[in-house]
Computed example of a mutant assay.
Amino acid sequence: MSWVQPVRIPADVDQEDRLVGGFTARQVTILGGTGGLLYAIYLIVGDRVPLVVCAAVALPFGILGVLLAIGRRDGVSLDRYLLAAIRHQRSAKSLVSTPGNIPPPPSWVAARTGRPPAPLRLPARGVAGDGLIDLGPDGVAAVAEVSTVSFALRTPDEQDALVAVFGRWLNSLSGPAQILVRAERVDLTPTISTLTANARSLPHPALVAAAHEHAAFLADISARHDLLRRQVLLIMREPAAGPNGRDAAAARALRRLDEASRLLSACGLTVRLLDASATAALLASCFDPTAPPLPDGELAAPGEVITRGERW
């Protein structure tokens, strides 16, 4: 009889391996590098400087090395946190969208003091007319909004059926896919305005009073709470290769979304592909969640010339 020894897998699969004494390779490198540097300095100046002075000077550097190795802040190790802070301090704070490098100002322009702006490098090159995100050499990405279904209110058999359908969709994936669950603020002002305007045409005074009472209730909770709604997005990305790679990648991404829509419909989920305006509004809200929404009118595409008719 053969026995199979179970292997415990940690919940965090991205956790670093512990090599020596519970320390990771990064921590061992920091501690060993700090100790080796201090020892090398002692070998150089130890004969000319008293031992007490050497210990007093080396103690702060030793404590700093230990803190960098084992310390954490907001879930990030202190060495990576310090490197990120230095990188942020040295990087340009003003970024502008430009197809190339920013040319220097002419000699006759009195440039302001401070760090000049730097080009804004984004993975997305723009949103095409079909709503797909152009990723340049990385291909295209199709974004769809997916409805939700209550899992806890289903019976065990229904839950097993939902899991089986979802598993079949996962097994059918032929390329990269991302499920993004985001929370966005909800503005009840249009709903309250529509409710108040429609209350005037209600046939009974009791209905009018109920409509105004509900509008006041919505206005009260909107003023006292930060209302959020959950949005589930399904993103399909396809790489582009060849002269017509963008069109082929777009066709594959749309086909994969269509397959996901057919399979997930068995779970009662609706997959709706976002059009160009909805995708642009989504990207804008991700970059600046506190900004007002984009206007509903048609937006000019990047590089498109905007004209205006004049009356004579």
Rank of each mutant, 00 (worst) to 15 (best):
L207P: 00
V127P: 06
L228Q: 15
A110Q: 14
I102G: 04
R154T: 08
R121I: 13
A124S: 10
I133F: 04
L68R: 00
P190K: 02
L162A: 09
D47C: 01
S222C: 05
D12W: 04
H212W: 02
S147H: 07
Q178H: 11
L257D: 02
P50Q: 09
T290R: 15
L51Y: 09
N101C: 07
R73P: 01
G245A: 04
F287C: 14
Y39N: 13
F61N: 06
S172F: 07
P190I: 05
A219G: 08
G242V: 01
S277I: 04
G303E: 06
P123N: 03
S107V: 11
P190A: 05
D296T: 12
L234A: 02
N101F: 08
E310V: 14
N101P: 07
Q231Y: 02
R224L: 07
L153D: 12
T24R: 03
G62Q: 05
A58F: 02
D74S: 11
A276Y: 02
T270R: 15
L299V: 07
T34H: 02
L170W: 03
W169P: 00
R18N: 11
A301L: 14
A69G: 03
A284R: 07
M236P: 01
A141H: 00
A253Y: 01
V146R: 01
A210G: 04
A85W: 09
G309N: 11
A142H: 03
I192M: 05
A284N: 08
H225R: 12
P6M: 01
R154D: 07
V208C: 06
E145K: 10
V96E: 07
S2Q: 14
I133G: 03
R125M: 12
C267N: 13
R90W: 05
M236I: 13
T307E: 12
V127M: 01
D160Q: 14
R26N: 10
L207Y: 02
R154C: 08
I30Q: 07
A197G: 05
R256I: 06
T113M: 12
T270Y: 07
V271D: 01
A301G: 08
A251Y: 03
W108I: 08
P117K: 08
L43W: 09
L294N: 00
R48T: 11
L43F: 08
L122K: 05
V96T: 07
A215S: 01
D134C: 04
V232S: 09
I41R: 10
T24F: 03
S277R: 15
G62A: 13
I133R: 05
